[in-house]
Simulated scan of single mutants.
Amino acid sequence: MSRRSDRDLIDVLLATQEEAIRAAFMEAIADTVNTVVLKIVVERLERGDIEGALQALQLDAAAFSKLELRLADAYNSGGMATVGSMPKVRDPQGGRVVFRFGVRNPEAEAWLREHSSALVTAILDDQRVAIRLALSEGLAEGQNPRATALNVVGRVNRVTGRREGGIIGITSAQERYVAYARQELMSGDAAQLRAYLGRERRDKRFDRTILAAIKSGKPLDAETITRIIGRYSDRLLELRGEFLARTETMMALSKGRDDAIRQQIAAGKIRVEDVTKIWRSAGDNRVRHTHRVLDGQKVPMDGSFQSPSGAMLRFPCDPRAPISEISGCRCVVSYDIDYFASVVERFKAEAA
């Protein structure tokens, strides 16, 4: 691979890796909702057995196996692209220094295993919180058990044969958005209906219907509300997939790139003191304030960038950093490496 700027390198990798991770997440959610046996969920809700209904949804880590594989692909591609973009370097006797990335490196495999496991566990734990709350509120409000179950798992699209409009896959915070949006639409109150029209992720194709209800003073019918909320929920799921894919792809790429440099250091091909890290923001008005401040800052290879928030980041999307510093981050780190100094010192050491 020819040498590229770090931004170009990341953009090329993102073009394929981010979409693969997003698709794997969405596939895991689709697999989960489309294998639900609705009858069992409804029967357990009729008995007031919320935990039993939750268990019947069979939220399973195995459904996310492809997501874990795609994370590994992104990590490996980051590492391999990094060494692939390194210049041709020769020692004083003319021998070539070969840079390689070991995808089966024990430390790399350990990180991938631990990170992907923690990610899937966090997704499932948050799902249980959201679903448990939705089921509990549905029953507490006297809602029909079947309707409550359908609000969670979604309704079958007669054209595609797949379930749509449920809350499985969205975060617990997003589930609250759905619950409040449903209340707004069911209220029949003009002010609350207008509040719904302020929701950024709504399907605007329904705006005319809502405006007509406001003008007429007549409430929306249950079927229309179900359709509107279903599309709103689907759009939140799309947003969830996009943000998860961007964050996790950038994290895997950044970690892979960092580990690739460290593998060269461990192999004695580069000296740690000859590597400087430089923070590069995306350079637009969407960059969070703390990262605009970091733009252009330099630290040693073993150093960390200190955010104005106090957080320490080894590189953008550092998995050790708070979610507020990594979610949706598009920054990259450049590695300024004095290859000549490293090669000369290595040659001297070998000659001695």
Score class of each variant (00 low, 15 high):
residue 174 Q to N: 06
residue 144 N to K: 11
residue 196 Y to P: 10
residue 195 A to T: 10
residue 143 Q to C: 03
residue 209 T to G: 03
residue 201 R to N: 03
residue 166 G to D: 09
residue 157 N to V: 05
residue 222 A to S: 04
residue 166 G to Y: 02
residue 162 R to A: 07
residue 205 R to I: 04
residue 153 V to S: 06
residue 207 D to I: 05
residue 228 I to T: 08
residue 237 L to S: 09
residue 218 K to A: 10
residue 226 T to Y: 00
residue 202 R to H: 09
residue 158 R to F: 11
residue 155 R to L: 07
residue 155 R to A: 02
residue 183 Q to G: 14
residue 238 E to R: 13
residue 234 D to K: 00
residue 201 R to K: 09
residue 200 E to H: 07
residue 212 A to K: 14
residue 204 K to V: 14
residue 202 R to A: 08
residue 168 I to P: 00
residue 163 R to E: 10
residue 197 L to N: 10
residue 235 R to A: 10
residue 188 G to K: 14
residue 160 T to R: 01
residue 220 L to W: 08
residue 244 L to D: 10
residue 223 E to L: 09
residue 213 A to G: 03
residue 224 T to I: 14
residue 222 A to Q: 08
residue 197 L to F: 08
residue 168 I to V: 10
residue 209 T to S: 11
residue 195 A to Q: 01
residue 192 Q to A: 03
residue 142 G to H: 04
residue 199 R to M: 13
residue 184 E to S: 02
residue 213 A to L: 07
residue 205 R to A: 13
residue 215 K to R: 15
residue 204 K to L: 09
residue 206 F to V: 01
residue 187 S to V: 06
residue 227 R to G: 01
residue 174 Q to W: 11
residue 146 R to G: 02
residue 162 R to S: 05
residue 204 K to D: 12
residue 189 D to E: 15
residue 240 R to T: 15
residue 147 A to Q: 15
residue 154 G to L: 01
residue 157 N to Q: 08
residue 140 A to K: 12
residue 212 A to Y: 02
residue 228 I to K: 08
residue 169 G to Y: 06
residue 220 L to F: 03
residue 149 A to S: 04
residue 206 F to W: 15
